[in-house]
Write a protein that binds this DNA or RNA. Structure first.
Length: 494
RNA sequence: GCCCCCGUCGUCUAGAGGACUAGGACACAGCCCUUUCAAGGCUGCGACACGGGUUCGAAUCCCGUCGGGGGCACCA
């Protein structure tokens, strides 16, 4: 894309009503990438004009989520900026001012209809295949309107939309979109409590904050004519609009759920950024994956660093069709990113998750075992079950039958274990030495390597699926290893 | 019901009239490697929604049908 002539200023403007959803995160990401690509500003604005649905935790979830994803913003409610305040309820006077201006200039009118009447009208019109308001108050005289307002009658303010003709808006992603005014409503722009609706607030703020590009979800296309008309009525130049298609639910129908379901296998299907974090998705992996949902660079590149994403992002290559969230692919990305971590960094990242899982892990042990489990991890929380046995005094009781190698019987196990014990009592506890000694021992005992390794693994780890044996033994150390072998032998002798 | 958007493998996508025998990735299957589990390598399976046009030629342009999504609040 050619660099826009005006300075690029984009915003992510969520409403603090609930948890921070990946759909929103993706919108934030695309705005962020666009801003960084053009060397512009990424602004955070809180659209809290809905007092009823306000959720005090939402802002924390949002800010924490953006920080976790490392989508740093240049201006926002917490850090301020030259165009603040960045919370809409702190800007009410501004909206009032323009609302009055619109009424005075005949672009908007007071509507005294009660919610009851509106509900009734809506119902009646629905039967006729029409929707919305019947414009009952549209032609009240200025005098009557003012008088009733002065008398204290409750009212909302509606935009006086043209009754005929059409309006064409150019969307940077979709191209031209045309709407017939005849199909549009006289939308409420100011509620009876003096708080504007989204439509007025968004236009006023985007203009005052000098937003150059509005990149938002597809659910807003239908209010495009309303917004553009508002810009006209206010005498302002509208920003460039770009509507990105939504993310669809992997299970079932419709846009991606606001609730976290479960896969048929019982696995959690996260939809909140917080949950992705809790499960141990790496921010870079999530960001990379999210960028590929609805955007592509070329026909084969999908693994990209943040820097590359920024370099390569463009609105032109944003897809117009909705796409389904693919957990398998995200997991694949995450595994890839985990495998690319340096062992030290992996250890650092793993530690808090292990502690959260109740494992009394120390940095040094984790650092030593990290390379062995690295390629086995899909998400960071997977590590717990790979390493828990390193950090217990006594192994939880396991099924003794697990000790039995393929095509052998329980009675065959004690001699194998005793042979292993003899070897391990003397062997040097390093990966290669253990490898050599145990292989040789197996051969001497007339066993295949696996037939010797399996019982040792079970005796020492208490489970069938575990990190590679020699790494495990090396980290565990001779003392613990022998102790666990003895303990298994003791149980077998009972 | 009305309005808007969209329609390439199961999924994410490449493709902007001839370069398409339609490319890549995930998933799936098989094989190789292998001390469990992974990871990795190789191979395979698999799509232009349908019907009409336009054109010498259409996945690409137009129309219709069907399908999917979104919207029609004093919510955003």
């Amino acid at each position: 894309m050619t660099t826009p002539s005006k300075p690029v200023r984009v915003r992510y403007a969520p409403s603090p009503t609930g948890d921070f959803h990946v759909g929103g995160a993706r919108t934030a990401l695309f705005n962020y990438l666009f801003a960084r690509h053009h060397g512009g500003q990424f602004i955070l604005r809180i659209e809290d004009t809905d007092q009823k649905r306000y959720n005090p935790q939402a802002l924390t979830w949002l800010l924490d989520g953006l920080r976790y994803l490392e989508l740093e913003w240049d201006e926002g409610p917490d850090i301020g900026g030259d165009f603040g305040p960045y919370t809409q309820t702190e800007r009410l006077e501004l909206y009032q001012k323009y609302c009055h201006q619109l009424i005075d200039e005949g672009h908007a009118y007071r509507c005294f209809c009660t919610p009851e009447r509106l509900a009734q009208v809506r119902q009646e019109r629905q039967k006729q295949g029409l929707s919305g308001y019947d414009r009952h108050c549209r032609n009240l005289s200025a005098q009557e309107s003012a008088a009733r307002a002065d008398a204290g009658e409750s009212f909302t303010v509606r935009l006086k939309m043209p009754l005929e003709g059409d309006i064409t808006v150019t969307d940077a992603i979709r191209g031209d979109i045309t709407f017939q005014f005849a199909n549009l409503q006289d939308a409420v722009i100011m509620k009876s409590d003096g708080i504007p609706t989204y439509h007025l607030a968004v236009v006023v703020d985007d203009h005052h904050m000098q937003i150059s590009h509005v990149i938002r979800g597809d659910e807003w296309v239908n209010s495009l004519p309303l917004h553009v008309y508002l810009y006209r009525a206010l005498g302002w130049e509208p920003p460039v609009f770009a509507h990105m298609s939504l993310i669809l639910n992997p299970t079932g129908k419709g846009k991606m759920s606001k609730r976290e379901g479960r896969a048929p296998d019982g696995r959690v299907l996260p939809v909140f950024v917080r949950t992705f974090q809790e499960l141990g998705y790496l921010p870079d992996a999530l960001v990379n994956y999210m960028a590929t949902v609805g955007w592509s660079f070329d026909d084969k590149t999908e693994i990209m660093t943040r820097r590359e994403l920024i370099e390569r992002f463009s609105l032109e290559r944003v897809n117009t069709s909705p796409s389904t969230w693919n957990y398998d692919k995200l997991n694949h990305f995450n595994g890839l990113y985990i495998r690319n971590l340096a062992p030290d960094e992996l250890a650092d990242r793993l530690l808090p998750y292990l502690h959260a899982a109740g494992i009394n892990a120390d940095r040094d042990t984790i650092r030593r075992i990290a390379p062995a489990i690295q390629e086995r991890l899909t998400v960071l929380t997977d590590a717990a079950e790979w390493v828990d046995f390193f950090f217990v005094d006594e192994l939880p009781e396991f099924d003794l039958n697990l000790l039995v190698p393929k095509k052998m019987a329980l009675a065959d196990v004690p001699p194998i274990l005793r042979a292993a014990r003899n070897i391990l009592a003397q062997a040097e506890f390093t990966h290669d030495a253990l490898d050599a000694a145990l292989r040789q021992g197996a051969k001497a005992a007339g066993l295949k390597p696996g037939q010797m390794f399996q019982p040792i693994r079970i005796a020492v780890c208490g489970k069938k699926v575990a990190p590679p044996l020699f790494n495990t033994l090396e980290v565990l150390g001779r003392q613990t290893t022998l102790k666990r072998l003895d303990s298994a032998l003791a149980r077998l002798e009972k």
